[in-house]
Simulated scan of single mutants.
Amino acid sequence: MTTLQAEIAELIRQEGPLPVGRYMALCLGHPRHGYYMTRDPFGSGGDFTTAPEISQMFGELIGLWVAHAWRASGAPARFRLVELGPGRGTLMADMLRATRIVPGFREALSVHLVETSPALRARQAATLQGVAPVWHKTLAEALDGPVIAVANEFLDALPLDQFVMTPEGWRERLVGLDAEGGLCWGLGACASPDAGEQGTVPIGTVFEAAHDALSVVTQLAGHVAREGGAALLIDYGSLRSGFGDTLQAMRRHGFADPLAEPGEADLTVHVDFERMGQAALKAGAALHGPATQRELLLALGLAERAQALSLKADAAQRAAISSAFDRLIAPGETGMGDLFKVLALSQRNLPLLPGFDLHRLPDRG
């Protein structure tokens, strides 16, 4: 039993079963034993690998997208480049390196990182020496004036609550204790989640209420709509809304039981990009997308960038570039191309941003 599991078990004994969202928040963000508070989870020695760690090409192209969004916003003399959940700082470092060629861009920006983990803040500081980033614990602290924000694999780690359709109606899914004192799933009293227009829902259907992710998107959308700028959201999930249990635990690059070792495994969920887009529309922003990561990266010039790097590489380096290229855009379980989606938010007067020429949700709000 992990130390955090013992604390959660005692909390359940005192207060009763926990909603899934509260359980996730404790597993990931407990100040002493939370998963992200105590480690660097990235790379081959960690539990998972993100796109910026696979290849510099990813961050370089995202950086050029950001520079285009800055110019489309009127090239403000001062703006904040905000990254949510910046990992090791790799994505930010690659974005900044790629944008050195853009006149006036580097002089106009200040770097702001939304990060709660002391361990990861230290890693980011080492990666971004000479950049002088400003760290924030909340998104609200980072938003001031024109902003261009990037969130890669951030929304998937935000807590959500789950509801299960039963013969009595929707009931909230809870984490409780079994007869031996171990963690187990259970159901609470009947509830009324905002599941949208649903019609007849089969017994056993799971609805996920992503309140924290929707709050982040609403904040971003409202801010760029009022103050200017754009936001790019990249994560794994679905283009269209639906039902289903997407909660999963990752440890040592494999799936684990979400209840087995609280604080020792990453907990994530799939992002519902349609619901995120509708929240952004209601907050006053324009939408670009959603599209797949494959579509975005190819539209931004991934193939050309890979070819340019290969021309200067030896045989081993060319093989690594080719492998990274495939992993970033390959479909199915072998790559990230279709599983990962991208959605951009902006002021309504901005032109359609790069990579989204053929993808735009209808304006329904």
Rank of each mutant, 00 (worst) to 15 (best):
L259A: 04
A6P: 00
L328K: 06
V342S: 06
R294V: 04
G335W: 03
L214M: 12
G337T: 07
A313F: 02
V66E: 03
T268A: 14
G222D: 03
R121I: 01
L350A: 09
A324S: 13
L281R: 09
L352N: 13
D144A: 15
R78D: 14
D326I: 04
L91W: 03
L139D: 03
C190D: 04
Q56W: 00
L155M: 13
G196S: 11
G188A: 05
I329R: 12
A320Y: 05
G289Q: 07
L26H: 08
I148W: 06
S323R: 13
G43Y: 08
F325N: 10
V217I: 15
A72G: 06
P258R: 07
D338Q: 15
A265V: 08
L345H: 03
L247K: 10
M92G: 03
A330I: 02
G277Q: 01
I321K: 04
G176L: 02
M276P: 08
D212E: 15
S73L: 05
A77L: 10
P19V: 03
V20I: 15
Q129D: 14
P331F: 00
G335N: 10
P362F: 02
V216G: 08
M165S: 00
V271D: 02
F340G: 02
T200R: 13
V217Q: 09
L358F: 14
H68C: 12
F243M: 12
L26V: 05
G29A: 14
G263K: 05
V150I: 13
T200P: 11
H68Y: 12
